[in-house]
Simulated assay, not measured.
Amino acid sequence: MKLRPVGGAVALFLASFPITYVLNGLASMEQPLVIVAVGFGALIFSFAFVYIPSRSQDPLYYVCMVFSFTAGFDLIIALGEDGIMSNIMGFYMKEGERYLSTAYGIMICYWDAIVHFALYLLMIAAIAERKSYRHVGLYWFGSIAMSMIVFLPGNVVGKYGTEIRPAFLLNVPYLLIPFWALTRIFAQPKTLPIVTADKVSEEQLKSVFQRPLDLGLMGFLLFAAGFTLFRGLVVLDCPADACFNYIHQQEPSLHDPVAYPKVQMLVYLFYVLPYFCLCLYGLLFPGCSWMPDWAVVFAGAIAQAQFSHIGSSLHSHTPFPYRTPEGAWWPVVLLNVAYAVGPQLLAYRCLRNPAFFSLVAARDEDKKKQ
């Protein structure tokens, strides 16, 4: 690993602390328009600071560097709101993005400052060494896309919807750039293990009962699909007794006025549920070559979503009536952890042994049948 680019990203991450300290002492930072101007100025300055000396041929290098810089601010926000350090981002929380003081806001700040920052370092190192970062990039895209898809609508429809400030626009690059990055990541050659035609044929001729790991994953997918549908019905105010009891006795956070949990469950219902159903098909029938890549994307998305959901349902910033009850703490947490771990195992299985998903052998088999 080349330490110089990685060290530069770490330096940018740490530079956010003294910069924030200086900004906190400026009286002008109490004005919303000044805050958004300084925010965009910081993004432009950090990009120029990285671009001028490096001249990397991969534009994602600059994205990772700039996002590493902003990840430091997210750590400052999270630590300040949790009382672990002085709240030197108080000016931003007051006139910038007040909703970041919610439990969900704190959780996504921690995730960005720790997990996303680690992924940026991995991608920066891979770019510096001219290696593929396809899988890391796909995982990062799934994670950051999920956070934005839930965070932005939640800000608008939740109880902070009437307090949107101009700083809300600072989130736009984090919504648009990842989708642009995805097109470049997909353009990279696939780096799956090389398998022979005989191995592909052997794997694709096996029934699901001869593939115990796939059988277990199918069991998880059936459970996850049912659980996703059930919680979707819960947040849609289904009058069934099971839904009523669940939202009052297990996960009252689903009716939290901040609306992030509700939006999260609706995203699960309309996007993740169809994905689970497609994966069931992909594990039953060979040749679904899309499975490895999208398994990584959804693994990142669900990991981020579940971390934020579990953490916010237990966090002290969530009002007591909406926190997970003590008596239901372990069952609810274990259920949600299992929901998060399953997609990680599915992604690992797809990348570790991709022969079953090879499209070539599946086409050859179809020709023989014809």
Rank of each mutant, 00 (worst) to 15 (best):
G300F: 03
P53Y: 07
S56M: 15
M1W: 13
T196K: 07
L213P: 02
V36G: 10
S253A: 13
P166Y: 12
V6A: 14
A301H: 09
Q370D: 09
G342A: 15
E202D: 12
E30M: 04
V63D: 10
I127K: 11
Q204C: 00
L229D: 08
Y139F: 15
N155M: 15
R349A: 10
M146Y: 05
Y104F: 14
I247S: 12
L273V: 11
P252T: 05
Y275Q: 03
L26V: 10
V172Q: 02
A259W: 07
R363L: 08
F227N: 13
S54H: 04
L75G: 11
F168C: 02
A347R: 04
M93K: 15
R211W: 01
A305T: 13
F151T: 09
G90W: 04
G8S: 13
I177L: 11
F285R: 07
V50D: 01
P286Y: 03
S253N: 09
F230E: 00
K131F: 06
L14E: 08
D74M: 11
F356Y: 12
F356E: 03
S312I: 05
N24K: 05
H248W: 02
F67M: 10
I185A: 07
W290N: 02
L280T: 06
I127C: 10
E163H: 05
V136N: 02
Y348P: 01
F151C: 04
P292N: 05
C279K: 04
W330I: 15
W330T: 14
N245A: 15
G226Y: 12
Y160E: 11
P321W: 11
T70W: 14
S86I: 07
L152N: 01
V136G: 00
K2S: 15
V235E: 04
D256T: 02
L175V: 14
A225L: 14
A187M: 04
G311F: 13
M1A: 14
K2G: 09
L119Q: 11
I44W: 08
V200P: 00
D58E: 15
N155I: 09
T228I: 08
A305Y: 01
E129I: 03
T70M: 12
G142W: 07
I77T: 05
A145V: 09
Y281S: 09
I76K: 03
K131D: 12
A27R: 12
G287R: 11
Q204T: 01
K2M: 07
